[in-house]
Design a protein around this nucleic acid. Structure first.
Length: 805
RNA sequence: GGAAGCUUAGCUCAGCUGGUAGAGCGUCUGCCUUACAAGCAGAGGGUCAUAGGUUCGAGUCCUAUAGCUUCCACCA
C-alpha cells in the first residue's frame, strides 16, 4: 500500500541501492538484442563540484538511455571523466600549490589521477543521486593508462599512414601558456588599440610612403609592402623597393589584391608572422620568414634595441623612438578584434616552431561529407558543422609544449635525427623515461625524447574507442562503429565532434556515430547561461535534489525543446513537485481498485473506457514519434496531457462505476478496473524515463509483483495495437464538453459540484452520446437528460435546494 | 561582412506535411466533491514582430524589413 504522502527522500535512496545491487542497468555485450551505444561526454574535472549545467544535460542523456532501454535495446551508457587538459592541470596545481617547473611529468600525471580519485566519487554520487542509469562502476579517465595507450596507438597508426607529420610551420602560439594551440581554442575579443601611421622610405627617391599599423614592434620582421594593383595613387611604386623606418631594411613593393585601398593608408606592411593574413601571404609570395617574437612572448635579437622586451613594452618603446625620429605622423585610438587564448585570455602570436600536425586540410571534402551523413538533432546544427569545415585553414596541430598530458611515443636519434616510434605492445610509454629497444640505422643508440605532449583533443577524439574498450578490451578498434549517439552541447560542435569525426575517418573511414544530439544551455531569467562564475546558480544540484527530489530536478531538465536554451525558475520546480504528488494520488486511487481487476480485456468494455484506452494509444504514438526525434520534452508533454485528461475527466467518470457496482453493475466496474489500471501502467512506463524513482515505487508495489518483474525500467513499454478510432475521440470530446458545461454552470452559480441537476437538455450533439448517458449522469449528478436536434446548446436546470439560496 | 536560430496570451513556451489560436504559471471567481485544499471547477486574456506575395483559405509556404541570440570572418 502506498502512503498518503509521497516521501521522496526514503524512496529515492531505496531504489538507488536496489538498482545498484541488482545491476538493473548493467550492459551485457553478449546480449543479442540490438545495441544502442552512447558516446557520453566525460565531464571535465576542473573543480570539486558539478553544476546545474551538468545536471541539465546529463539528465537529458539519461532520459534517452532509459527510453532506448524501454524500447528493447541493449543500451550501453558509459561514463568517463576528462582530466587530461589544462583545466584539470590548473585545478591540481592550484589546490596543492605545485611548482610544476621542477616536476616530472609522470609524477604530475599521478597526482592528477589521484586527485580524480577524490573528485570522482563526488561526481558519481551526484549522478547516482539523480538516478542516472550510466555505468558508474566502470568509468574511464582521459589520462588513465588505457586512454593513453589508445591515444598513442592512434598517433602511431596515423603516423604510419602518413597522416601525421612534424613540420616547421606557422603555429598559433600562446606566449602566456607557452604552448601551441589549435584554432578551436581561440576566442576573439574586442580590445582597444592604437593605429600608428608611420613613414617608410623609397629607395632612390625622396618620397615617403605612409603605412598604418597596430603592431609597429614587428617592424624588424617586415619582409615586404603590399599595394592593391588597382590603386592609382600608388601605382608608380610597383617594382620599387621600400625602406623600413628605424631598421632601414629594404623590402620589395608588391601588388596584392588582398590589400584593400580603403583600409589604413591602402599600403600594408607584411611581417611574418604578425597575424594569419601575414601567414597566408608568406606562403603565397614565398616570402622569407623572420621572427621578431620568441616563444616566451619576448622580442628576439632580430628586433635590435627591443630585444628581450615583452611585446607591449616593445610596442611602446618603438612608438617613442618613431616619434623622436619624426617617423610617426598620426595616431588613432581604435578598437579591434584580437585573437586570444580561451584558457588564459592572453593575445595569440603566430610563431614558426616544429610541431606535430594531423592532415585535415587535404581531407576537407571527406569531413564535409561526414557532416552530411550524420543525423543532427536539431538539424540546423549541421550547418554549423559544415560552416566550420568550410572555414578550415590550418592542419590540426596536436603538439603542446606542456608538461601535463599524454606524451608522444616518439624519440629522435641524437646523431641523424631520425624519428623512432614506440612499439604498440609497449604502450603507453613516456619517452622521457624509456628508450627505444634497438639502435638507430645510423648506428647511434642515443635518443632524444619528444618532450611535448598531445593536445587533449587528440585523446578525447577517441572516446568512441575508449568507451567501447571498457567492455571489449580491444583497444583502438572499429567493431563497434558507428556508435548510436553522441550527445553534446553546441559549443562542442567544432571541437569534440569535429575531431572525433576526423579521427574516425582517418583510422577507419567510418562514421563515429549515427546521431548527434545538441543540447542547449540552462539559463537564468535574463537568458544568461547558468554558471558558477556568473553566480547565477540559485541552487546547486545537490541542494536541488535534497530540497525538491531527483525526480523534480529531472522533470525540469527534460521539459525542453531540443537544442533550445531553457530558463530555470523556481516555479518550474513547484510545478514538477505538484505533478509528482498528483501521480502519487491518482495511482493510489487506481491501485485501491486493483483487486479483482481483469488481466485481459473484458468483453463489452464501456464506451468511455474504450475512449480513454484509445487516447492512450494516440498518446503512445505521439510519444514515440517525438522520442524518435529526441524531442524528450515534447514527448513528456504528450504523456502529461493524457495524464491530466485521465485525472480530470476519466477518473471522475469511472469513479462512480468503481464505487457503486450495485448501481451501475459489476460488468461496468470490471471495465473501469481494467481501463484505469491499463492507463496507469502505460503512463507510468512513459513517465519512468523522466521520473524513475516515483514510477518504480508505484510499479514495483503493484504491477511489478504480478509477474515478478525486477524493475519498471526493464519492463518495456505497453504493446498496444495502433488502431485509432477517431469517432471515439470525437465522442470523448463531446462528453468532456458537456461535463465542462455542467461544471461551469455550477461554478457560476456558486454551488458545490455535487449539487444535483434536475434536467439537462442536450441539443445538437451526436446520437452516440446516448450510449454514455449513465456516465454523464453520474459525473454531473444529473437526474434527467433530454436530447434535441438543432444548433449546439446545453441547457441546465439545477435542483431547487434551500441551502443554495 | 557571411551563416543559423528566435520573435505566438502579463511570464515561460507548444503548435508536425497550410483549414475557424493551445498548455502551464500568474490573475480573477467559486467549491471541503468517498485519490488529491501543496486540491478541484470555472472565467478573463492574443489583429500569432512588420510589410508584401502564393492560395478558396497562412501562426504554418515564399520575399523583403526590423529587433534579439549564437557561430564564423574581419587584426594594415
Amino acid at each position: 500500500m502506498l502512503e498518503k504522502k509521497y516521501n521522496y527522500k526514503t524512496v529515492e535512496e531505496k531504489w538507488h541501492n536496489y538498482w545498484n545491487e541488482n545491476n538493473i542497468y548493467k550492459f551485457n555485450p553478449q546480449d543479442k538484442r540490438p545495441k544502442y551505444t552512447i558516446d557520453t561526454p566525460p565531464p571535465t574535472i576542473s573543480g570539486p563540484n558539478l553544476h546545474t549545467g551538468h545536471m541539465f544535460s546529463y539528465t537529458q542523456i539519461d532520459v534517452i538511455a532509459r527510453h532506448k532501454r524501454m524500447s528493447g535495446y541493449n543500451v550501453y551508457f558509459p561514463m568517463g571523466f576528462d582530466n587530461n587538459g589544462l583545466p584539470s592541470y590548473r585545478f591540481v596545481q592550484k589546490k596543492y600549490n605545485l611548482h610544476t617547473d621542477s616536476m616530472e611529468r609522470s609524477e604530475l600525471v599521478k597526482m592528477c589521477l589521484n586527485e580524480m580519485k577524490n573528485i570522482q566519487p563526488i561526481y558519481a554520487n551526484l549522478f547516482n543521486s539523480l538516478g542516472f542509469s550510466c555505468a558508474l562502476d566502470n568509468c574511464y579517465s582521459t589520462i588513465d593508462e588505457k586512454s593513453q595507450k589508445i591515444s598513442q596507438q592512434s598517433f602511431i597508426e596515423l603516423y604510419n599512414k602518413g597522416e601525421i607529420s612534424r613540420k616547421n610551420s606557422a603555429t598559433l602560439w600562446c606566449p602566456e601558456c607557452r604552448t601551441a594551440i589549435a584554432l578551436s581554442e581561440i576566442d576573439t575579443v574586442e580590445k582597444p588599440s592604437v593605429m600608428n601611421y608611420i613613414y617608410f622610405g623609397i629607395k632612390d627617391s625622396d618620397e615617403k610612403l605612409e603605412i598604418a599599423t597596430t603592431r609597429p614592434e614587428l617592424l624588424s620582421a617586415c619582409v615586404c609592402v603590399f599595394i592593391n594593383p588597382e590603386d592609382k595613387k600608388h601605382s608608380h611604386l610597383f617594382g620599387k623597393t621600400a625602406i623600413s623606418p628605424i631598421y632601414n631594411i629594404e623590402v620589395p613593393i608588391i601588388a596584392n589584391p588582398d590589400a584593400l585601398m580603403d583600409k589604413g593608408t591602402g599600403v600594408v606592411m607584411c611581417c611574418t608572422f604578425g597575424d594569419e593574413a601575414d601567414m597566408q601571404w608568406q606562403k603565397t609570395y614565398n616570402l622569407p620568414i623572420k621572427e621578431a617574437i620568441s616563444a616566451n612572448g619576448r622580442m628576439t635579437e632580430l628586433s635590435g634595441f627591443l630585444s628581450g622586451m615583452k611585446v607591449k613594452d616593445a610596442r611602446n618603446a618603438i612608438i617613442e623612438k618613431l616619434k623622436q625620429e619624426k617617423l610617426l605622423y598620426k595616431q588613432e585610438e581604435i578598437t579591434h578584434l584580437v585573437a586570444t587564448h580561451e584558457r588564459c585570455s592572453h593575445e595569440i602570436e603566430i610563431l614558426s616552431k616544429p610541431q606535430w600536425f594531423i592532415n585535415i586540410l587535404e581531407h576537407k571534402e571527406e569531413i564535409y561529407q561526414a557532416g552530411l551523413k550524420c543525423n543532427w538533432y536539431p538539424n540546423a546544427m549541421q550547418k554549423r558543422f559544415l560552416n566550420w569545415v568550410d572555414g578550415l585553414k590550418w592542419d590540426w596541430c596536436i603538439s603542446r609544449q606542456n608538461l601535463y598530458g599524454v606524451p608522444f611515443p616518439v624519440w629522435y636519434c641524437k646523431k641523424c635525427g631520425k624519428i623512432h616510434l614506440a612499439n604498440v605492445q609497449d604502450l603507453p610509454v613516456d619517452p622521457v623515461k624509456t628508450q627505444p629497444k634497438n639502435s638507430c640505422e645510423c648506428g647511434c643508440s642515443e635518443f632524444e625524447p619528444e618532450k611535448d605532449v598531445m593536445d587533449t583533443w587528440a585523446t578525447s577524439s577517441l572516446t568512441p574507442e575508449i568507451c567501447m574498450n571498457l567492455v571489449t578490451n580491444k583497444g583502438l578498434n572499429d567493431e563497434h562503429l558507428p556508435m548510436s549517439l553522441r550527445p553534446t552541447a553546441h559549443d562542442n560542435i567544432r571541437v569534440w565532434n569535429f575531431y572525433t569525426i576526423v579521427k574516425s575517418l582517418l583510422h577507419f573511414n567510418k562514421m563515429p556515430w549515427n546521431d548527434v544530439v545538441i543540447s542547449g544551455y540552462a539559463v537564468d531569467e535574463k537568458g544568461d547561461k547558468i554558471s558558477k562564475s556568473k553566480g547565477n546558480e540559485k541552487l546547486t544540484p545537490q541542494q536541488l535534489v535534497e530540497q525538491y527530489s531527483a525526480d523534480v530536478a529531472r522533470y525540469w531538465a527534460s521539459n525542453i525543446s531540443i537544442g533550445q536554451d531553457t530558463t530555470f525558475t523556481m516555479e518550474q520546480l513547484t510545478n514538477a513537485s505538484k505533478l509528482i504528488q498528483k501521480i502519487w494520488n491518482a495511482s493510489k486511487f487506481v491501485i485501491s481498485f486493483l483487486d479483482g481487476a481483469p488481466k485481459t480485456e473484458p468483453e463489452n468494455l464501456e464506451v468511455m473506457d474504450k475512449w480513454i484506452i484509445n487516447e492512450l494509444k494516440i498518446t503512445q504514438q505521439n510519444f514515440h514519434k517525438n522520442m524518435l526525434k529526441y524531442e524528450i520534452g515534447l514527448a513528456l508533454k504528450e504523456v502529461e496531457k493524457l495524464f491530466w485528461n485521465f485525472c480530470d475527466n476519466y477518473i471522475e467518470i469511472a469513479k462512480n462505476r468503481l464505487y457503486k457496482p450495485e448501481v451501475y453493475g459489476e460488468k461496468a466496474k470490471l471495465s473501469a478496473q481494467y481501463a484505469s489500471s491499463l492507463l496507469l501502467r502505460g503512463m507510468l512506463k512513459m513517465f519512468s524515463i523522466y521520473m524513475p524513482h516515483i514510477t518504480e515505487e508505484i510499479y514495483m508495489d503493484t504491477f511489478g509483483q504480478v509477474n515478478n518483474e525486477k524493475s519498471i525500467h526493464l519492463s518495456g513499454y505497453l504493446q498496444l495495437d495502433d488502431n485509432i478510432d477517431n469517432d471515439l475521440t470525437k465522442l470523448g470530446e463531446e462528453v468532456v464538453e458537456i461535463v465542462s458545461a455542467i461544471r461551469g454552470f455550477k461554478s457560476q452559480n456558486n454551488v458545490s459540484l455535487k449539487t444535483e441537476v434536475e434536467n439537462l437538455v442536450i441539443t445538437g450533439y451526436s446520437e452516440k452520446i446516448k450510449q454514455v448517458e449513465k456516465d454523464i449522469k453520474a459525473v454531473g449528478a444529473v437526474k434527467n437528460i433530454e436530447y434535441k436536434d438543432g444548433e449546439k446548446n446545453i441547457d441546465i436546470t439545477l435542483v431547487f435546494d434551500e441551502t443554495n439560496n
